[in-house]
Amino acid sequence: MSELFAAALFVFVLVTAVTTALLRDVLAVVVVFAAYSLGMALFYAFLLAPDVAMTEAAIGAGVTTLLLLLTLTKTNRTRPDRWIEGVDLPALAVFAALLIVLVVTLLNSIPAVGDPGAAWNNPGVTQYYIENAYDDTGVENAVTAVLAGYRGFDTFGEAVVVFAAGISSLIVLRQVVFTRE
């Protein structure tokens, strides 16, 4: 049952991703891209990463879509003569061949989901977090313990980057916004 669900989700995400690339109408692209983000959010939840799933749902499917729609209402939208972008068939064939070669040669080296012997499973680090996060920080969600505790300096840098990006946009475009203050 869950394999069926995962397969359906995978097909959905793949179809929406390809559709996003191929559609010519910008509004349709924004709508399909939101559906893609929603599919990815479900995928993350299915892969037991609820924190990432919530972020994807709120930012990817929600806020980004709204911002893109707002931008569309302020710009010209050209009515396309056809719905689908033209595809360069020889280039597509070369890319598909390359992709098939890569997948066939590399598929075996991708670890299974949750495989304890996988290369990413660095016991010196991850196992330490899993075993000691609660005792060290008193926080039950190990993700929060890592983000705000063990790697708090990283988070500080990220927060400052978000702040700097937002403030820079405000300053660059302040003439439009701050006239109402």
Binding site: P50, D51, M54, T55, A58, I59, G62, E140, N141, A145
Partner: peptide, 17 residues
């Protein structure tokens, strides 16, 4: 967020939304 999935980033995003 400290005791269940989620956290301040997600919470802030939902409040902004």
């Amino acid at each position: 967020g400290a005791d269940s999935p989620g956290g301040s980033f997600q919470g802030g995003a939902v409040m902004a939304a």
